[in-house]
Write a protein that binds this DNA or RNA. Structure first.
Lengths: 345, 345
DNA sequence: CCCTATTCTTAACACGTGTAAAAAACGTCT
DNA sequence: AGACGTTTTTTACACGTGTTAAGAATAGGG
């Protein structure tokens, strides 16, 4: 059990009788070493406890094999699903992922970017924080690294690759569905913590105008600390339901977490969204949050293709870091949302 | 804007006219350098673009200032809350957190441990994967690093520090509450993916026996892919409710995510948990999942003190890595759960 | 047994920064 | 101006592995 601990390749070389450069090549790619040596090294490694020093190995390589990922907060299953698909895609491609979470704090986000530059990551994928994050951070990363933004994008930031959902399509899709099957929806906004908040609002508005209908947006003012979407949805609708407003409306929520709060508000007022099938109170969301299909009633929503977004972000990043000169033709990939008709609308 | 990029301290030294050792000391601790030099360096840094190389700085320090954290999966808000509290505690203490997620895969978990050893992290905090994870991994980490386990712990693993919830207390608390206010609960187990699954089962059983009642456990066999707790709860109870079983029972679920599936099963069968206040069908959970207070009905549960667990894990780890010789007196910290009485039971 | 192609070893420098020792510069006080 | 304490510079080596160039060893073919 207690194998002798060996701390350097030099010691290992002496211990198993293979020269250090050969060991170095073995650890990078065993096929670059002859069969017989591979066998000898493998047997030797079983006798001792040795792990190459991560820092030393990366120091004078041109590539570190790492990609950095920044997400804005952890307590949201949408981002954890996105992160999971990214980690899996990166793992398949042989990269190590370093994840940093900004915890809704622009300073932490900026520090995470510094850390990535300092660690010489090969590239970075970032889901931006939102309106009060420092755009210079993204521009700086973009100019120094292969860089891809995902999920949401600042309006004024040019030449940056982006992968996300086509909100005009996805929000348009559910807006049209709600209008067609029941009645035209009002839009329950989320606090504008990220750029998608506004994009979805605008997509809703333009679809409504296209249909010749009057858009109505409620809940723009944040009644809660940021990030607590459910509490926001609950507070806003509790306010309106108490006055008797919107109790027969179709309500399109800016995302599923807001919608979960909305469902709760309905329950507190004895309302049952979706029971009249084609009229009365209806509540819908956006994202297909993992719990949406377990809500009561199950939540009608538009699914974002999280899997595809993560994969595409990694693919694009790897494509960029394979070419030497950044030829800087911007790529924007927008995935379609898929309607998930359930009970609530 | 386009500041000249400087890649080494040597270049920086030449650029701003301060010797390299002084710069080195400045970056580690500006107070170790005179006021006048600090000012000169600060002004110089504004003129150029320079970030110290992370790997080079850590290579020949005795301490890297990093702590490694492993969590079993990301798509669970309990673990993301735990991770968040750990990151914040570590940040306050001046440490950089490197997070690795095992994605329910023992191989990935083992690889993450290797990575930490390879990176010379100062210590590691691990929430173990569960029954099929390789105990050798934990023993190896424990013998080579300051190491703390959290959340759940293998039965046969000795001398390892642990921070988690006292499940005898927490599960006992809600078992007693359910018994006292309505009727004795049956226990809806979760797939035994981690060690807590069994701990809670046993805590339930012994509390029932203490009360002179017959324990009943259902749902031990996994009907779903692991990690999909909601689907498990839904499938198991749908099965029983279809036969008319347990429709007037008090059901204690192994965790809130299972309970959310249970609530959904009840809804599908037209059942309304908790409406009779002191009898009829009741459903309760464990953990106080962030969405539990928004469920319909709101979910009665026992809150784990996630904040305290994360803080205590970091505190204990830092305490261990401050002392030179590991004196190896094991510390086990168990936090109490707090009853959250809501509508469902 | 010799020749050649492959693979290995030896030796050396490189990566960028930490760190220590000695010498030089600086500041302050008398 | 002289003396002393502080801070800086100079110089050198260290961390552990990547990488290269030269020479040595090995294998396979005739």
């Amino acid at each position: 059990m207690a194998k002798p601990e060996i701390h350097t390749m030099e010691e290992l070389s002496a211990a198993i009788g293979v020269s250090r450069p050969t060991l170095s090549r073995y650890f990078q790619d065993p096929t670059k070493v002859s069969k017989s040596s591979v066998e000898r090294i493998r047997r030797g490694l079983e006798q001792v406890e040795y792990i190459p020093n991560f820092f030393a190995t990366r120091m004078n390589r041109k590539t570190t094999g790492m990609i950095g990922v920044i997400i804005p907060y952890l307590n949201d299953l949408f981002f954890t699903r996105l992160l999971e698909s990214i980690e899996r895609a990166a793992m398949r491609a042989g990269y190590t992922v370093i994840t940093q979470c900004s915890h809704s704090d622009p300073e932490i986000e900026a520090r995470a970017a510094e850390t990535f530059l300092s660690m010489n990551v090969d590239g970075a994928v970032v889901a931006p924080l939102g309106n009060h994050s420092d755009l210079n951070v993204y521009e700086r990363l973009n100019s120094r690294l292969p860089f891809v933004l995902m999920d949401s994008r600042p309006a004024r930031l040019s030449g940056v690759d982006f992968v996300g959902t086509d909100h005009v399509q996805s929000t348009g899709l559910i807006t049209e569905y709600l209008t067609r099957v029941g009645g035209p929806p009002v839009f329950l906004a989320m606090p504008r913590v990220n750029f998608n908040a506004l994009e979805r609002e605008m997509a809703y508005t333009s679809k409504m105008e296209e249909l010749g209908l009057e858009p109505t947006i409620i809940g723009m003012e944040s009644l809660n600390a940021e990030g607590h979407f459910e509490a926001h949805g609950l507070a806003v609708l509790d306010h309106y339901f108490s006055k008797g407003d919107f109790i027969n409306a179709s309500i399109l929520c800016a995302n599923d977490r807001v919608a979960i709060g909305a469902l709760r508000a309905a329950a507190q007022h004895g309302l049952e969204p979706g029971t009249l099938r084609r009229g009365g109170l209806r509540i819908a969301g956006h994202d297909d949050y993992p719990l949406s299909e377990f809500m009561i009633p199950t939540l009608t929503t538009v699914a974002q293709n999280v899997q595809a977004i993560g994969q595409a972000a990694v693919d694009r990043l790897i494509e960029k870091l394979r070419v030497e000169k950044p030829q800087s033709n911007q790529t924007v990939q927008l995935m379609d949302g898929v309607l998930k008709v359930r009970q609530s609308a």
